[in-house]
Structure formats: structure tokens, C-alpha cells
Amino acid sequence: MNTTYWSWDRFFEALPFILDGLGLTIFLTISCFIFALVFGFVWTFLRRIPNRPFNWIVSWVMEFIRTTPPLVQLFFIYYAWPVMPLVGTTLSPVQSAILGLGLHYSTYISEIYRSGIESVEKGQWEAAQALNLSTLDKWRKVILPQAIPPTVPMLGNYFIILFKEVPLVSTISVAEILLLANTYGARNWAYLEPLTIVGIIFLLLSYPSSILIRKLEDRMNTRFDKNALAKSS
């Protein structure tokens, strides 16, 4: 029994082994976030199609994705999708991870876009119409440039949340830091040190980022109408 207590030797042996996965963790965070940002727009667009039954279906589909566990969604995409009749294709673990987490968080991101769009003053919509702008120009030149910048701190918060969700994908055998920590643990029958390392890595990266976002939030608040977003949400 040499495994009961904390060992600094093990700590420093496990450290480089786990840090090998950090690049993949960050890559996945960024990829999932980009996927969620793009797909969030798709949801927002679908919800604005003026057709009641269609809207109702879209919002319940979003609700379903948002209120069911991302872990099960990952399992669905990784294990179930390949054996689906007709549409099934095999996805690599990394592809499944990006698709799964990206889709889950796109429903949250869409909600943020919505609050941003609704915070654009009514006069701006009317002005765009009065100027006879095409729908595309209205969105591109008037609405979105005003709707998106105030949402940046909120999007940033979701980036950090997503970063902390990425270790979920260790369950579908993506070799990010948590999987490597568990691998090290299984090999040496010592989990405490490697898992502590993972915790420290998350703390070291997410805590400064959250302070940065808070600063950004303050700056945005002074630049834009403080209450515009709060009012609409």
C-alpha cells in the first residue's frame, strides 16, 4: 500500500503526462464554441420565421436539447448515431464531441442573441424600414451591429462554462486532460494527484478569464445603455 497518501513525486510525474492533453482541451473548447456561435444563429433565425406552429416546434426542440443532459447527448451521437437506419454515419470521438457540446450550447447562445436583438430599440427597426433597407441590409447594417456587441461578456461567460464542460468528452474516449488523468490513475492506481492536477489546471485558466470577463462587462456597461439588456431579458 503505497497509494494511500499524497506523493509529490507522483504529482510531478503525472504533470507532464496530463499537460499533453491541454492543447486538445483548448482546441475542443474553441471548436465547440464556434459551432455553438454559428448554430445559435440558425436557431435564432428559425425562431423568427413567422409561422406559429413551426415556431412552437422549434422552441420545444430547443427546450428539449437544453434540458436534457449533455452527457446523454454525447452518448447518443457517439454510440447511437452510427447505427441509425438510413442517416447513420460513424463519427470520430472528436467530431462527436464538437457536435454534441456545440449543439447543446447553441441553444443557450441563441437565447443570448435573442436578448441582444430584442434590446435594439424599436426606433431603429422603424428607421431601417423607413430607409427602405432590404431585409439583409436591415440586419447587417442596423440591427446586428447594435445587438451583438453588448452580448460579448455573456458570450464570454459561456466560453468559460463550455471550457469546464469539455472534460465530459473523456467519456467518449477523447484524450483530453481528464482522460489522461484517469489513464495515469489506472496505470499507477493513484488518482488523487492526477485529478488534483486537472482541478488546478481548470482553476488557473478559468479564474483569470472570469475576472477578465467581469472587466469587459464593466466596460460594456459604460459604453452601452446599462439597462437595455436587463430590460429585455
Partner: peptide, 22 residues
Amino acid sequence: VEIFRGTSLIVQLFWLYYAIPM
């Protein structure tokens, strides 16, 4: 608050799973 908000739930769960019995 910062420890629990700054790390992932799944990491905390595994950590406690191995650490508490120890």
C-alpha cells in the same frame, strides 16, 4: 465558491470519489 465554480463538476465528482474514502 471560487474552487467549485472554477473547476468542472465531473472533475470534482471524480476527485471526491477517490479522495473521500482516502
